[in-house]
Amino acid sequence: MGKQPEKYQVFEKENEILRHSKDLLANPDMIAEQSWIKEYELLAQSYAQLLGEVKLLTSVSDRLQNKLNKANDNIARKNEELTQTLDMLNRERAGKRATTIVLMLAALFFIISELVIDPQLQEGIKLFGVSGALMLKITVAIVLKPLEVLLENLLLKTAARIKM
């Protein structure tokens, strides 16, 4: 039998028993005939002991595998939770950014309307009346919300592309 790797030295005793049995079989004259029963008894005892240990090692190993499986399941669950939290965080960030941009746009619209559109509206009032001019301002305000949603979706898509 060749030299075994270091980690198998844990079976040093078992290897020794096997080596001894093989030696006896190869050289039957090594011992007296009546000693064979004694040798067989020793071999049977060792086999029983080894069988007991193999059963123990198998059940220990199976339990370790179960522990690993449980740990893996736990990691997968935590990973899923983390992904969901990250998605929520990204959505939150994109929403905030979209709101900021829309607010800036609203402010810009206000300035433009005050400086450019209002003088035109004064002319418009003459044409459509006060309610017509008011409707125009309300329409601009209502359009801001879908614009925010559009921007949020655009930012989310951009974030997803960057993540990939």
Partner: peptide, 13 residues
């Protein structure tokens, strides 16, 4: 708390 398979063999020893 925890032991690997080869440690269990050493425990037997």
């Amino acid at each position: 708390e925890y032991f690997n398979t080869s440690s269990s063999k050493c425990l037997v020893e």
